[in-house]
Simulated scan of single mutants.
Amino acid sequence: MPRILFIGVEGGGNVPPTVAVASALAARGHDVRIAGIRLRRDRPSGGDIRTTPLASLEGFPRTAKSTTLRTIADFAGLAASRDIAAEISALIETRRPDVAVVDCMMLSSVGAAVRAGVPTVVLMHSLASFFLRGWRTGPIGLIAGARGSRPLAVWRAADAMLIATERDLDGFEHGLPLEHAEWTGTTEQGAAPAPRDPALPPLVLVSLSSMWMPGQADVYRRILTALAELPVRAIVTTGGAEIEGVLDAPPNVEIRVRSPHEEILPHASLVIGHGGHSTTFKALAHGVPVVVLPMHPLIDQPIVGRAVERAGLGRMLPKKASPAAIRSAVSDVLQDGRVAAEASGMGERLRERDGAAAAADRIERVLTTRAAVRAGAASE
């Protein structure tokens, strides 16, 4: 039974694709282990998956109040940490996996797997246009490069790269600078809309990341103010992020810490989100349009928001949008039949595909290729 080691981190939207692909492989009978990510009840997994904590990742991520500079330092450290690389090297030596699947943000971990001679697959869990442009050439990528982990060089050293998103929304018209990369599609699963009661106002789901973001509480408050004057029902999920102060919900809004979005989305007419890849594509997989207010300029959120707006699947607003601007955008999207039709069509297309299965297929091909190479070398 092939042993497959996933290496990841509790970083928010990177977790669902990792768990989904690991689950697809475990369901096929592979021996799957995930290092660095916990499995919780709200993270359904298929098959028998074991987990291993990583001591070098203790305290990451920061769900409480931080600063932009601290966030950059945290993620640059994640990318280029020698301590993480050393722990991954020791884990590979102990577990001896047949293939390692590594989060694309963990550059030093990718390098550790490659140096150990293990077939290595890089998992890119958002738009490639973000990682290959903003992330690679921004402060995190530049700091990592200065510490010896240049993103393109590290990714190219792997056997394969999987891009777990939809190519049509990614913005690459002339191909990638990575010959071994391929889009395997989003791993987010959706369901057809549930029957709507015409007597009830439309349902809006609000979610602004499970991680703390600068100004997050203020954005929640402006959204609540906007929704208070609209003929809608709304559910706000804070995802466990530390919210400064108290959020006062108007009568038409319910606030929950955690609630499975897949149970709400079949009944929802709109999602107001932060542009996180996982939240956004889960909404789209259910055929639900999105209003995006990016919380952080250095993460994928602005690029995801622009992709949504460009495709006619919703609107993007600045983080500091006023309650009136938010109210107007919500009202416009809810009343725009073209947006509803585009979102519905996207949902149907996404539900026809299985991104986790496609990624699992590619990982199995890496296993087969390496096995054939070893067999050929042994026969010489």
Rank of each mutant, 00 (worst) to 15 (best):
M1G: 10
F6V: 08
N14M: 10
L25R: 11
H30P: 01
R33K: 14
A35M: 05
G36H: 00
I49C: 02
R50D: 08
L54D: 01
E58Y: 09
T67D: 04
T68Y: 13
L69R: 15
L69V: 15
R70C: 01
T71P: 05
I72G: 01
A73T: 13
L78D: 00
A80S: 12
R82N: 03
R82G: 02
R95I: 13
D103G: 02
D103V: 06
M105P: 02
S109Q: 04
V110I: 15
A112C: 08
V118L: 08
S126G: 09
R133E: 05
G134A: 13
R136M: 15
P139D: 14
I140R: 06
G141I: 14
L142T: 15
A146Q: 07
P151G: 06
I163E: 00
T165N: 11
R167S: 10
D168I: 14
D168K: 14
G171A: 10
E173M: 11
E173Q: 12
H180K: 12
H180E: 03
T187A: 07
Q189C: 12
A192C: 13
A194N: 11
A199K: 11
L203E: 08
S207H: 11
L208G: 00
G215E: 04
I223W: 09
T225I: 07
A228V: 13
A228I: 06
A228K: 09
E229K: 12
P231A: 04
V232L: 01
R233T: 06
A234Q: 07
T238M: 01
T238R: 04
G240S: 05
I243Q: 00
E244I: 11
G245T: 14
G245R: 13
A249P: 03
P250D: 04
P250H: 09
N252C: 02
I255C: 06
V257P: 01
S259L: 15
L265C: 06
P266D: 07
S269D: 03
S269Q: 08
I272Q: 05
G273M: 00
G275A: 08
K282M: 11
A283E: 01
A285N: 02
G287V: 14
V288H: 00
P289M: 06
H296L: 14
Q301S: 09
V304W: 00
A307D: 05
P323F: 08
A325C: 04
S328K: 13
V330E: 02
S331T: 13
D336S: 06
R351K: 08
R351M: 05
D354N: 15
D354A: 02
A372G: 11
A377K: 10
